[in-house]
């Protein structure tokens, strides 16, 4: 293309404007510390965070902690998604299952999930099981609600097309319900994954020997704010990558949606 499309240029402009404030603040702070106006001990300048990040990365510490956290998230996510999908599908499909399960689940949902922590520790011990359970609880609810809502909102008119062509029960599920539910399911999975990353921090505060949450606590106890920020950056990067992977995996199945094509064309 000889000349970028106007909407492409607008996009770059929007990105530049959005970066202006954080980048300026970081640069000013860097200068202030460099000029000796502040020691930067409690609020480390970007260069010190970067150095800490690279140090942690080069010693393999960062990889070890990231993998520990990632495995917890994946285990909790897997369990939460499995339960959320099955129960959500049942509650969406059958009015009886909904009447049986939904009130209880909605009541449980009203409990702030962190409140389960002491109970999980008593039941499952201080090690991995209680952490994974907490993450699974966080992932479960958005997935459950998303799947139930998606199934309940499948257009009856489209289902009638399946009936007119005499689809069997399994064929109706495979050819009509699954594709109809998929866009909302992906959104529910992304919401669940986001909560999984939130809850892993809480889980690792419960006392962990490794993990990005451990780096946070360790940084606090030993007075290493640069390490805390470096761990936060690592959280952001890994969280974004997992979300991006989820989107990348689902995109080929959602090409028919307007929005997805729109993004692809950009």
């Amino acid at each position: 293309m000889a000349r970028p499309a106007p909407d492409r240029r607008n996009r770059w402009r929007a990105i530049a404007l959005g970066l202006l404030v954080p980048v300026s603040v970081a640069a000013l702070w860097e200068l202030a510390v460099y000029a000796g106006l502040s020691s930067g001990r409690l609020v480390p300048p970007p260069s010190r965070i970067f150095t800490t990040f690279m140090e942690l990365a080069s010693t393999g510490e960062l990889t070890r902690h990231t993998i520990a956290t990632l495995l917890r998230v994946l285990a909790g996510f897997g369990i939460g998604v499995a339960f959320g999908t099955v129960l959500g599908a049942l509650a969406g499909y059958s009015a009886l299952a909904r009447s049986l399960a939904d009130p209880t689940l909605q009541a449980l949902r009203a409990i702030p999930s962190i409140a389960w922590v002491p109970l999980f520790i008593l039941w499952l011990g201080i090690f991995e099981a209680s952490k994974v359970a907490l993450i699974a609880v966080g992932v479960f609810f958005p997935v459950y609600l998303g799947v139930m809502g998606a199934i309940m909102s499948v257009d009856r008119k489209i289902v009638e097309i399946g009936r007119i062509f005499r689809l069997s029960g399994p064929a109706m599920i495979r050819r009509i319900l699954l594709p109809a539910v998929l866009p909302e399911y992906v959104i529910a999975l992304r919401a669940g994954l986001g909560l999984g990353w939130m809850f892993v921090v809480a889980a690792e505060f419960m006392g962990a020997a490794e993990g990005l949450g451990y780096l946070l606590i360790d940084g606090q106890q030993l007075g290493k704010p640069a390490q805390i920020v470096a761990a936060i950056v690592a959280f952001a990067i890994v969280g974004k990558i997992t979300d991006w992977l989820l989107v990348a995996v689902s995109t080929p199945f959602l090409r028919w949606q307007d929005v997805v094509t729109h993004h692809r064309e950009r």
Partner: peptide, 20 residues
């Protein structure tokens, strides 16, 4: 008594499956 292979139907709306 149930949808039949010899009977087709066209509705007021096209009711196309958007993912196909």
């Amino acid at each position: 008594t149930a949808p039949h292979p010899k009977i087709g139907m066209v509705f007021q709306e096209p009711r196309l499956l958007p993912w196909l």
